[in-house]
C-alpha cells in the first residue's frame, strides 16, 4: 500500500466519490463530489474507474507529501499547484515520486479542485460509498475534513504510463464557459406569482458567504410567492432551487438534506451543476429556464463528449517492473535515470 501525508490541510478538503445512493428514504444524504465532471475527469486522467475516491479541495488546497510513487491528476480549479516547487498544470496526468511534495495556494478561478490518485484512495466503504458526509460524521477520513498529519492510503503503483493525457479544451469550454445557469421548472411553479417567476428570470443573484456543500444561498430580488414559501416536507434533489418565505433562492448541493419544506421553483440542470458548484461566494449568477428535454440533451452531450475523449486517450501503459534505474554522474552531479521500454 502506498501512502500520502497531509502536511498542511487546505481550507476545507474532504474525501469524495460519486455519492451514497439508495439510502435517502432513511434520511442519508447522497454527498459525493460537488462537481461530478471534474471529479470524473480526474479519475479518467490516471486511468481509474470513473467513480474512484478523490480529494475535493475548496478554495485553498492541501500540502501533501507522497510517500510512494504514483500517478495523480488535479482538475477543476487551478490552486497554483506546485510539485517540489515547480508549477504543474491541472487537467493533465502527473507523476509523483516518493518524497515529492505537492503544494497549493488560493484558487484564482474555480472554487473546487479534485485530486485523483492511480487506483483511488483507500478508505472505508460506508453504505456503498466512500464519500464524507459531515453531519453524520461518516465516510471519507474519519467522517471529517482533512487535517494536518492525516495519512491516506492508495494502492501500490503497478502500472505506469509513458504518456501524460490532457483534458481537451473543448471539454473545459463546454463545462465551464461563462453563461446563465439553466434550470427546469418542476411541479411547484404555480406556488409563485407570474411576477415572482419574472423576477427570478431577470435578476442577478449573488452567492452568499454561508454557502457550503449542503446548499448555495443567494441574495437578490425577492421572488414573490402566490401564498407563502412553506410546503408539506418532501424529497429534494441535487440542484433543487428552494425559495423560502424571504424570496431568496437556495440551491441544494451534494450534502443536501433528503427532504425540505420550502417551495421549489425548479431544478438546475445536471449539465450546469459543475459550473454552479465552481462558483465562489460573492460571485453572481443569472438563471435561465429550459425544458427537461433540453436538460437531458445537454447532459447527454456532455457525457458523450467526455466518453469520446476518453476513448481516444493513449496512456502508453507499462508495468513498473519493466523500469530500470541508473545512477549517472555528470558534471560532478548525480542523476537518477529511469529507462522505460515502450
Amino acid at each position: 500500500m502506498g501512502s500520502m501525508k497531509i502536511l498542511k490541510a487546505g481550507m476545507f478538503s474532504t474525501i469524495q466519490d460519486r455519492g451514497r445512493f439508495g439510502h435517502q428514504a432513511k434520511g442519508i444524504s447522497v454527498s459525493g463530489a460537488m462537481d461530478q465532471i471534474s471529479f470524473k475527469l480526474a479519475n479518467i486522467l490516471v486511468g481509474n474507474d470513473e467513480n474512484m475516491t478523490c480529494i475535493e479541495m475548496t478554495i485553498k488546497g492541501d500540502k501533501i507529501l507522497f510517500e510512494s510513487d504514483s500517478l495523480i491528476a488535479l482538475t477543476g480549479s487551478d490552486m497554483d499547484f506546485k510539485i517540489n516547487g515547480c508549477r504543474v498544470n491541472i487537467n493533465r496526468t502527473l507523476f509523483v515520486n516518493r518524497g515529492d511534495v505537492l503544494e497549493s495556494s488560493f484558487s484564482t478561478t474555480n472554487k473546487l479542485a479534485y485530486m485523483s490518485v492511480r487506483g483511488g484512495l483507500v478508505v472505508d466503504n460506508i453504505m456503498g460509498s466512500s464519500s464524507t458526509f459531515l453531519r453524520a460524521a461518516i465516510g471519507g477520513h474519519e467522517g471529517r475534513k482533512l487535517m494536518d498529519g492525516d495519512l491516506l492510503s492508495y494502492p501500490q503503483l503497478e502500472v505506469s504510463m509513458s504518456k501524460t493525457p490532457e483534458v481537451s479544451l473543448e471539454i473545459i469550454d463546454m463545462i465551464y464557459s461563462p453563461r446563465k445557469i439553466r434550470f427546469s421548472y418542476g411541479n411547484e411553479k404555480d406556488r409563485f406569482t407570474e411576477k415572482g417567476v419574472d423576477t427570478f428570470l431577470n435578476s442577478i443573484y449573488t452567492i452568499q458567504n454561508d454557502s457550503d456543500r449542503m446548499g448555495y444561498r443567494f441574495s437578490g430580488d425577492a421572488v414573490e410567492h402566490a401564498t407563502d414559501g412553506d410546503i408539506i416536507s418532501g424529497g429534494i434533489n441535487f440542484g433543487s432551487i428552494q425559495i423560502p418565505g424571504n424570496g431568496q433562492p437556495i440551491v441544494m448541493m451534494a450534502d443536501r438534506q433528503t427532504t425540505g419544506g420550502y417551495t421549489k421553483i425548479g431544478q438546475v440542470i445536471q449539465a450546469d451543476l459543475p459550473l454552479l458548484s465552481q462558483k465562489k461566494p460573492q460571485e453572481t449568477v443569472e438563471f435561465e429556464a429550459v425544458t427537461v428535454d433540453h436538460a437531458i440533451a445537454a447532459w447527454k452531450k456532455v457525457n458523450s463528449t467526455i466518453k469520446e475523449w476518453k476513448n481516444s486517450l493513449d496512456y502508453g501503459y507499462y508495468k513498473i517492473n519493466e523500469v530500470r534505474r541508473f545512477n549517472l554522474g555528470f558534471n560532478n552531479k548525480s542523476f537518477n535515470v529511469k529507462v522505460v521500454e515502450v
Partner: peptide
C-alpha cells in the same frame, strides 16, 4: 417519513 438527518 424519514428525512432531514439520517433516521430522523
Amino acid at each position: 417519513m424519514i428525512g432531514f438527518t439520517p433516521g430522523f
